[in-house]
Design a binder for these strands. Structure first.
Lengths: 221, 221, 221, 221
DNA sequence: CATGAATGAGCTTTCATTCAT
DNA sequence: AATGAATGAAAGCTCATTCAT
């Protein structure tokens, strides 16, 4: 029994929490949620199982926190891009094009965030600290409103409070299209063998998300 | 040991299969997927556990079949409505309004189908007969193409092959919005206590789906 | 439900029993005992599961009967050979050599009988009709005594009642050596990769059985 | 939920493993292998089922380890006896007599080891860690070679490498005779009621093993 | 704080046997 | 006699969580 150096200061504790979350995320990238045991997370993080429970009250809480973390990363990225876009003058059509393009790209690169959101939506029900959920969702909610405001700024055709709704619609498109376009392994394999019959079922995530967002923005204006 | 009346003829067997599926669906309405054990399904259907496995090779196959069944019900309903709509002459705007209205209603009443689609998307990977998946998905795919054709008929602004894409987009909206708007139990409870802070997170499924579909159709035309 | 032609006469019934036994034996050759379900036997024999139970009261009884059948085949073969050997005059050493040679060969070709005897020895305890066991074992016992008498005839150094004992000893050697020399799959695989370390554990069944029988006969005389 | 005292040190863990093995062995003495569930072992050892799986990866591994343990006990006993025998000068005949006598006794008292060897021979195929098998069988193999060397020392008529073979032959005799002489319960009961008919099938394990070993040694020299 | 041994409910699936048809 | 749908006990194993050390 070698005991890992204790995290005493708040800063150290926060750091350890980060390490656990990153370890979990790395595992999540390559594995199904149900195949990731707390044991595995602990081993990969080179911590004892019990230690995980010092930082997260349950497996659900861990993955919920992970979702929040990834959400923040996504917001960070998107906000920066929007700022850049706002600076340069451009026509509505140009803006729509550019915006739909980079937001789609961001989803393409963050399918694991999408997976996380979907998974957590199922799994959250149990064993989770209400206050934490409230607290962290509040954070996300706020950034979301902020993002909405930025969009209203970017697209002059948006009325007040339309921005937030647009954000929700975009999220809807991302989550929905992920499940519509991302076939499960069984079907993917079959599609490889059996091309014709299934290819109506096979949509290209990136292309379709972008298209939907463009139509949506055009329909809105 | 009282043995349930044997299902001998093909018709009886099909009927028993139906009974099992309906039992499972009733359980699914009121419970989380992971809380529905095969034991429970068997008990509710007043059958022995082994009997379930006579009709379905695995739990996954049972719920996959359930999804297909519910899908068919949904198609049946929608196709009828579209036929009615097609008969009567109407303006584009009217048609969009009516269509988005009844399709949204159909989703509102079939949230369990949406849940099923989402769940099966995760769970399908394992213990399932490839051929069955291929076969049944083929059925769904065909009805979906059919539905696409009907939509092209209904909306003159749709080009050939746009119909199927529209169907996919609508599915995207339904799946996505379900997860965006349907808060998990924990949040629902908190929202009741704690109205203000959370209500930005609370979207009305029905209203938003309809709105999105309308915007989409308007953007398309 | 296509009903197989009924076996009404005693002869027909016996024949159907034979068919079942032969089917079971074919399965036994290529599979582990525990992997052979009654369902499988029924399917291969193109009979219904229930029909098996008309002819054999239990799975154990079926395999017990199979053992007896195979025993008889072995006795048939051996007795013929011994008769041939008895006819021709030969020295004691010659006879020992020839006898040990063909009896070893017979085991080599009937490893499945050996497996059966071993399996049945474990499995017999349950679900078996005592009278049947008594009856069929009696048959085997009688043939065994007969074989013993023939051996006493063949080898002049054997005293009365030594023959039967010799038969038992030979059976002992066959059963024992099978388990000593026949490595389980795991070990077999390892032996292939890892030649040196394991080859002390690897005996050649045929060679060693013959050697043991020869030493035994030499020691006896 | 009362948690059993934790086994922290390596020594304690080894001890707990021993306790589990001994519990399993006690159950094995009085029950058929297939009637010994992991649940039962856990209950008797007053541990939780999961705890067993902390120490043994599968039921097969547990019983394989048990076999190895019992093997070691047997070797310990036999080696001591052989050393004693080697010290005292004696004629070949005397040595054969004494050796066959005590080795037979050792088997008589370790029929459960014989049963274990037979059972494990069937059961080993599945769910077992190859390296463990390799490793532990290596141990047994080495002791066996050692025993062979001691026998060559004891019996001057043995040529180099004959010792190991002799050990294998003796093992053959023990395993084989166990199955030839040890009737299963059904037959044992019948034999009690029905003395005459069956007694040809009833050999005395001890007497016959000894006899065979003596004949074998005499034949060898 | 950190550890990791211990817990035990819980789950899916199999399959010999029965018996209504 | 033949069928095969129905039965249900049984069993191995996992894994989130706890808590003594």
């Amino acid at each position: 029994m070698t005991i890992k150096k204790r995290a005493i200061s708040e800063y150290q504790k926060l750091h350890r929490k980060q390490v656990i979350l990153e370890t979990a995320f790395n595992l999540f990238i390559h594995n199904e949620y149900q195949d990731i045991s707390m044991d595995l997370v602990a081993k990969k993080a080179k911590l004892a199982k019990g230690t995980l429970y010092l930082y997260f009250k349950s497996k659900e809480e861990l993955f919920f926190s992970l979702k929040i973390m990834e959400y923040h990363h996504w917001f960070d990225e998107i906000e920066k891009k929007i700022k850049n876009l706002s600076k340069r003058p451009a026509s509505k059509q140009e803006r729509i094009k550019k915006f739909s393009n980079f937001i789609t790209k961001s989803f393409e690169q963050r399918k694991n965030l999408i997976r996380l959101i979907i998974i957590v939506h199922h799994t959250l029900e149990k064993n989770i600290n209400e206050e934490l959920v409230l607290n962290l969702n509040q954070q996300i909610g706020n950034r979301l409103l902020q993002l909405g405001a930025q969009l209203e700024n970017l697209f002059s055709f948006l009325n007040p409070s339309d921005g937030a709704r647009l954000v929700f619609y975009i999220k809807t498109i991302a989550l929905g299209m992920y499940q519509v376009s991302e076939p499960v392994a069984v079907i993917r394999e079959m599609a490889n063998k059996n091309k014709k019959e299934l290819n109506i079922m096979m949509l290209d995530f990136k292309k379709e998300v972008q298209k939907m967002i463009e139509i949506l923005l055009n329909g809105w204006s």
